[in-house]
Nucleic acid binder design. Structure first.
Lengths: 333, 333
DNA sequence: TTGTATGCGTTATCAG
DNA sequence: CTGATAACGCATACAA
């Protein structure tokens, strides 16, 4: 392995000079810089990131914590989008992502998690889908031992940033548009709203948005908890849909569950989702939903983690959303 | 940060002794070992993997190269399964996975890739869905600079192992069973086989299996290339299905495309897939397919990479498959 | 602007 | 069985 020392020798300069060139330090004469770069080129030198990390005590490593398996979701489209977004941006920034699944953290207590991440030289955490139930993880975040970026959770402190869309407003808007465009079908006053979880930031925000609209339009709103589960949404639909005019769900997955149930029941009710996943294209009918750019969200989270690691303070970032409908033919082409 | 040196002091032994305990070396008296472990416990010491890697020149890092985006697949279920399997097993083995998307390697030539992986201190590569088109990547593998494990590609040499199912046999078996169980519908002799790519190991193996069966059963086989694309399969179905008795596809995604097309055409033909992905549950009709355990495959790949890194020689591993049908209700529960 | 020297936290060699 | 000590490749304060 060719090292910085070989480069120095080849270029006829000191090791530290090479290091300076490598890290774009100022105060290096252009001519020297050129000599060093030429030597680097000739020798095919590749800086050793491990040695660099050890010496500088900065690994540039962040852990992307994904909540897969938990809901035994059929299709893990959202985590995949997060991954792609995060990894791509991290590469551009010269950072390093390790992916961790909550299932792997499962039984660990806060101390074990700390040790695990420390042993991996992790400096920052990006946590997707953090829920209050993860007490150990919650304590880890609050400990401030790692810079954290929470996607879809509200907590912010000096070491912690939060990234999310305006869930309340988005739910309000999509439901409003959905109802306006579905009025062809009867009176649309009796609404089944399938919420996410009873507790949980995202769920309660979306519920608020729905309730606001219900008040405004004098809707008869029946709220039930679908736990973000497709199966649960299916059951609720079978139970309640017959005597409702429309179904609004706090997630696309639940909307798909509802729609498939309706098809099996052989009745029609308009269904509204939330998230904008491609799987919506396979539900059989086009539905209204809220589109989010998960890749961009994750990319933003990486940048934010870098910012926190750089010493800046945690903050809240609200990303845009859009209203959309997803068609099978668009999805596959 | 508490280091090995602190532990040594606390335990009243030398640094090297602590290191030996840490790495389960022989020739350490039990009593000494106990003292060291107690000190580790008390101080909450966590070994620094970076320093360890630098010193031992073994990073235990392997890159999982995934082919997402390429086909602009609607749902990236298979890569996600690979990831989960690989990361979980790697953690158990104390190894380290970085995920790389072929899109990120896109424009790089072999030299750039080499430098990239070297800079990441990668020792091994697990490549999912390698195709001959990736010439730069192919040269990288052949260079032997990294130990490689190829999933679904046949090349094997001293530094390279290959893992796959018996694609030929699987295609033969699933098609045979599919046809046997679909005979309720007319004569089933005129078959549209939608193949993967014209070139490509997996595709040609599956095609061979199909051709073998066609010969055996005197089928009239029309072979067309779907490029593993759902859209392409849709088009082919619309073009040919009317005058065929059944459609057999070299992937589930194409089978779904075919089935959705049939539904839109409002005709019925039995469709057979290959892979066993959950998305099959959303296709509208149950289909026969080949089930593969992608998680296990990736876990096996990680083990194999570890083996290669340990100095053993490359080999070919054939994993089992099964015949199955995927139902929506099974998928969501 | 460039060079020297020290240390980062381990592993590994070798002497005791 | 245990302890000194020299690497590992780089960053950085400090000296020149």
């Amino acid at each position: 392995m060719v090292s910085i020392r070989d480069v120095a020798k080849e270029a006829g300069v000191a090791i530290s000079t090479v290091s300076k060139v490598l890290n774009n330090y100022p105060n290096v004469r252009d001519e020297t810089k050129a000599r060093v770069n030429k030597a680097i080129e000739q020798l095919g030198f590749v800086p050793n990131s491990i040695a660099s990390a050890l010496s500088s005590k900065r690994s540039g490593r962040i852990a992307l914590v994904l909540d897969v398996d938990r809901n035994a979701q059929a299709v893990d489209e959202i985590p995949m989008q997060y991954m792609i977004g995060a990894i791509s941006r991290a590469k551009e920034l010269g950072m390093d992502i390790i992916t961790v699944f909550t299932a792997m953290l499962g039984e660990m207590d806060t101390g074990e998690m700390t040790r695990y991440f420390q042993s991996q030289s992790v400096e920052g955490l990006i946590i997707c889908g953090f829920s209050e139930q993860d007490e150990a993880l919650g304590r880890l975040i609050k400990s401030g031992k790692f810079k954290s970026v929470l996607i879809n959770a509200p907590d912010v402190d000096e070491n912690t940033s939060s990234i999310h869309i305006d869930n309340r407003r988005a739910q309000y808007e999509v439901a409003k548009k959905f109802l306006a465009e579905s009025t062809a079908f009867c009176r649309e006053k009796r609404i089944l709203y399938i919420s996410g979880k009873n507790e949980g930031y995202v769920s309660s925000e979306r519920l608020k948005g729905m309730q606001e609209l219900a008040k405004e339009l004098s809707l008869m709103l029946l709220v039930r908890t679908g736990r973000f589960s497709e199966l649960e949404a299916r059951k609720l639909t079978m139970q309640y849909a017959a005597c409702k005019d429309a179904i609004i769900c706090a997630s696309d997955l639940m909307a798909i569950g509802a729609m498939k149930a309706l098809i099996d029941m052989d009745i029609y009710r308009p269904v509204c989702g939330f998230d904008g996943i491609n799987l919506m294209g396979y539900a059989g009918k086009q539905m209204h939903t809220v589109g989010q750019d998960f890749k961009k969200t994750a990319a933003c989270a990486v940048e934010e983690a870098a910012r926190l690691i750089g010493g800046e303070l945690g903050r809240e970032i609200v990303l845009p959303h859009k209203l959309m409908r997803i068609k099978y033919l668009d999805v596959i082409s």
